[in-house]
Amino acid sequence: MVRIKPSVLKKACQINPLLPLLLPECRTIEAAQQELRWIQNEVSDKKRVRQCCMLRARHYPLQYLLGSQPFGPLDVTCQPGVLIPRWETEEWTVSLAEKLPRDMAFDIMDLCTGTGCIPLLLKQMCPKCSVFAVDRSPLAYKLATRNSNTLQVPLKIIKKDILERSSEIVPRTVDLITCNPPYIPRTTFARETARSVKLFEPKLALLGNKEFYANLVDCWMSRTDAFVYEVGDLSQCYYVLNRVTGDVDLSRKWRIGFRHDSCGRPRIVYGFRASGSRLNWASILVKFGDMKH
């Protein structure tokens, strides 16, 4: 991490003595001013504002302090112990939700649901669907339940390990599976992860690699017509692609595509059955990303 110049710190202090506390996370004075405004908007007590800024100086996540994170049109409650929804996830979920048929009833299952942000948004946009959400973390289960209640978006929430106990999860088959699995490999965690994430977000939500994509191919593809999985890098996209193209049967039945986020980074691997599905996924997901197979 680059150190902040003393001259910048001094300037920030002249404007508002709280700003230097926000600089380690915000980097620029402008961003720090912005963040201070957000804190002041949502926290009325002056002492509490100061406390928040002091915690921010210790890299404590803003979303845990303010207790929420906007996700599309929803305001999702956030709590320590459960991963904060990211804008990249919001971006693809909004885009996916816009493509799904609004007036049809079908089944969606979100694995590794965390706060429940993904299924909440999908259900909000497609109210006729039955939407299931799975997470093995008790904290995530509780928070997703709470979000579903306060936002009045009904979900069926299941507390289960998707790697170890997938066979116990019902329903047996659905139309669409979404998932943002833990995808930061242990080997790069220390180097490539921001301090605030490393110190304050749950490892269970972050650390993972090919196992979740292997689990997709091995356990879940047979149970769905389409899937959308978030990834951390291209190797995870290719892992899924290669597993599919390497298998005669899967290769014949499935189409696979990749999608980038608006910063140009690989963010999604998705797939759908070429034929025989209840919905016409090829046309629903047209232009969602680039087809690779």
């Binding site: 996370e25 915000c26 963040e35 957000w38 996540p61 803003l62 979303q63 906007p70 991963l83 904060i84 990211r86 804008w87 990249e88 996830t89 943002n180 833990p182 995808y183 930061i184 490539e192 992860t193 921001a194 605030s196 994430v197 977000e201 939500a205 972050l206 978030e230 951390g232 890098d233 986020d261 910063c263 980074r265 963010r267």
Partner: peptide, 13 residues
Amino acid sequence: RGKGGQHVNTTDS
């Protein structure tokens, strides 16, 4: 900068 996604939690809105 960096890898985005789960790696960072700043509010990039």
